[in-house]
């Protein structure tokens, strides 16, 4: 900011470029700023939170927001502000990990299915089957049948996302491989992996980046839903979903116990969706019109 103040008309430097970008892509900037803020809060949670999010003081239960407890306390006398701050961690970890893992796995399977036509039939039937299973039920079953942990939650949310990525990648590969230069490469005897890496992979990047943001949003949402249903990450770990779930009894008496985690959850998903919409408009105008 100081830089801008010193130079009256910003030269086409970094700040100027950013300003231009921001004017053209307000959603990306707004969403990105929100996400960045959340990420910073998550990373520096120990310094921001002030209190131990796990510390229970039953004598302090259900206190309204105050100078000592900014967001009040919950039924076990834990500091809701500290828990909300730490809750950002789980949401982001789950959201990002699921996005990265499901895109990686989906990409590999999708490329293979799209390129090796013999594989396609079998792979796509399996994918259709997996897609038909309601994601939330699959996740509830996986998590409650096993012991609760962040990793099980991530696996449970990733599995149903994979077929969606596979379908996307496969359709991109199928259209791309019809292009003359690829047919030429195949005819010219290039190795399979070369064709896949050099020619097919790049064409999937743009749609995948967009898809990844939507997966992130949906993963955060499903994690919260799982925690809400009591089938999520261990209850000792504060997450927005389980904060809401354990507080529902106190909705009338202590609405702050639900309001703060609920608002944060909605805000973060909103931020991810904004970034996704912005990226889609930028990277893939055709897709933008379709969605």
């Amino acid at each position: 900011m100081a830089v801008i103040a010193e130079t009256p008309r910003p030269a086409p430097g970094l700040a100027g470029a950013f300003g231009k970008f921001a004017r053209r892509n307000p959603t990306i900037v707004l969403g990105g700023a929100l996400l960045l803020a959340t990420a910073l809060v998550a990373i520096f949670a120990p310094w921001i939170a002030g209190n131990d999010p796990r510390f229970m003081a039953p004598t302090n239960r259900l206190q309204p927001p105050s100078a000592q407890f900014w967001f009040g306390t919950d039924n076990l006398g834990r500091d809701i502000f500290a828990r909300t701050v730490y809750g950002a961690r789980i949401s982001l970890i789950v959201g990002l990990t699921v996005a990265v893992v499901s895109v990686a796995i989906g990409l590999a399977i999708g490329l293979a299915a799209g390129y090796y036509r013999k594989l396609d039939g079998v792979v796509m039937r399996v994918m259709d089957g997996m897609m038909a299973i309601p994601a939330i039920l699959l996740a509830i079953a996986l998590v409650s049948l096993n012991r609760a942990s962040v990793w099980i939650v991530i696996v449970a949310i990733t599995i149903p996302e994979v077929p969606r990525v596979v379908r996307l990648v496969r359709s991109v590969v199928l259209t791309t491989r019809e292009q003359p230069f690829i047919e030429a490469a195949i005819g010219g005897g290039s190795r399979d992996w070369k064709i896949i890496l050099r020619h097919l992979l790049p064409s999937t990047v743009a749609p995948l980046v967009v898809q990844a943001t939507y997966i992130t949003a949906s993963a955060i949402l499903i994690e919260a839903a799982l925690s809400f249903l009591g089938a999520g990450v261990p209850p000792e770990i504060p997450t927005w979903g389980n904060m809401i779930a354990t507080s529902r009894l106190f909705l009338a008496r202590a609405p702050w116990t639900i309001f703060f985690p609920g608002a944060c959850l909605a805000l973060v998903i909103l931020a991810v969706n904004l970034v996704g919409d912005g990226l889609r408009d930028r990277l893939d105008p055709r897709l933008a019109r379709r969605m």
Binding site: M56, S144, R147, A148, A231, E236
Partner: peptide, 23 residues
């Protein structure tokens, strides 16, 4: 959760294993 907190205050290495009642 309270038991874990109390035991940790005594310096015990508590490993909480969360699961549903069926488990």
């Amino acid at each position: 959760m309270i038991l874990a907190q109390e035991m940790r205050q005594v310096g015990l290495n508590v490993q909480v294993e969360p699961m549903d009642w069926s488990n």
